[in-house]
């Protein structure tokens, strides 16, 4: 066997190994810069190393041009951290996606998250042409078939090494139609997805209802579901997410808690108010992790601390998820694997 042997694992990624071993997994998010400074990636990677199994590297998130997910992912790998390459259908057709994934695999990436992508009208190039040659379900199916059948989407055989990714997808339990959402997850499971990262969850009660249906369909036994966690930075952010962001459900009591956090502090003391809000935001995130951990079928959390990577450590530690489990090293090619 070559060095691509995965010894019974689909990809052999750390994320896959930790999930397969039955540990409660943690992934985080690393947003690349709007520039070409690799040092920014290294600094963020150092903040996150040891706190999670892998970090998602966003792909032109919210349709704003940033350093590529694969380029930034290669730097993250150099820092000894495992990337989850995000791949959207907005900017690339099936040719570009497949060729980029071959390159990502050759660079050492082993996880990929398959997304539709935010519409370009939200970003900084609203006059751009979008692609959407595939949708996220078809993308999942394509990457799974590249791995399991060694074939490109057209059916041609992949020459030599086929990319063996641990394949992820996204789910928004709060999108409409609400009752359809578990079935959409089922479609991704049918397409062969290995893990799911959900939209940010603040409304645990509503998410529990979603998970009830997910369990009824048996989907929690087919895919690893990582619940999305996002620490709130301020009451303003909480209100914005509650009122302005489609597909997010932030209950009023969390907005009130964020507001109350700085209630005794003078409005003049901006630094102290900011500090108090952030402390409360992290505390809420810790409580959410603990509540979500108790829901059957939740296999881990995905912590999205956008431009606030420092928040990941206190959340992981506060929720009792530190230190992270160390998977057994994969046997080398020469070892008798079985």
């Amino acid at each position: 066997m070559s060095d691509t042997s995965t010894n019974g694992y689909k990809s052999g990624s750390r994320l896959e190994q930790v999930l397969r071993a039955g540990h409660f997994a943690v992934t985080a998010e690393l947003g690349p810069p709007q520039g070409a400074d690799g040092e920014i990636i290294r600094k963020k990677a150092r903040l996150l190393k040891g706190l999670c199994e892998a970090v998602n590297i966003t792909d032109n998130q919210t349709a704003i041009v940033r350093m590529s997910s694969i380029g930034a992912g290669a730097i993250v790998l150099q820092e000894g951290l495992e990337p989850v390459i995000q791949m959207t259908c907005r900017d690339r057709n099936r040719l570009a996606i497949q060729s980029d994934l071959l390159g990502a695999y050759a660079l050492g990436a082993r996880n990929v998250l398959c997304l539709t992508g935010d519409h370009q009208s939200f970003g900084n190039h609203p006059t751009a042409k979008n692609v959407h040659d595939l949708d996220s379900v078809q993308l999942i199916q394509m990457v799974v078939e590249m791995r399991d059948q060694g074939r490109f989407q057209c059916g041609d055989e992949i020459k030599g090494v086929a990319p063996r990714f641990f394949v992820g997808g996204a789910a928004n339990p709060f999108g409409d139609p609400f009752e359809w959402r578990p079935y959409r997850l089922g479609k991704k499971a049918k397409a062969g997805v290995d893990f799911i990262q959900t939209q940010l969850i603040y409304n645990v009660e509503r998410f529990s209802k979603y998970m009830e249906k997910v369990r009824e369909l048996g989907l929690h036994e087919q895919v690893y579901i990582l619940a999305g966690i996002g620490p709130l930075k301020s009451p303003g952010m909480a209100r914005y997410m509650r009122d302005q962001v489609p597909g997010l459900d932030v209950p009023d009591h969390l907005v009130d808690r964020m507001t109350a956090a700085a209630s005794g502090i003078s409005k003049e003391d901006k630094a102290a108010r900011r500090e108090a809000w952030r402390k409360e935001g992290i505390q809420i995130a810790i409580e959410l992790v603990q509540q979500l951990k108790g829901i059957e079928g939740v296999a881990g959390v995905h912590i999205m601390a956008i431009e606030w990577e420092e928040a990941v450590r206190p959340i992981v530690e506060g929720a009792g998820l530190f230190p992270r489990p160390e998977p057994e090293p994969l046997p080398t090619a020469d070892d008798p694997a079985d």
Binding site: R90, D118, Q138, P177
Partner: peptide, 15 residues
């Protein structure tokens, strides 16, 4: 807007 073929994306809200 995204020419999806397998159901609504996460941005479908209140119809």
């Amino acid at each position: 807007a995204k020419q999806l073929l397998n159901g609504p994306c996460g941005g479908s809200q209140d119809g």
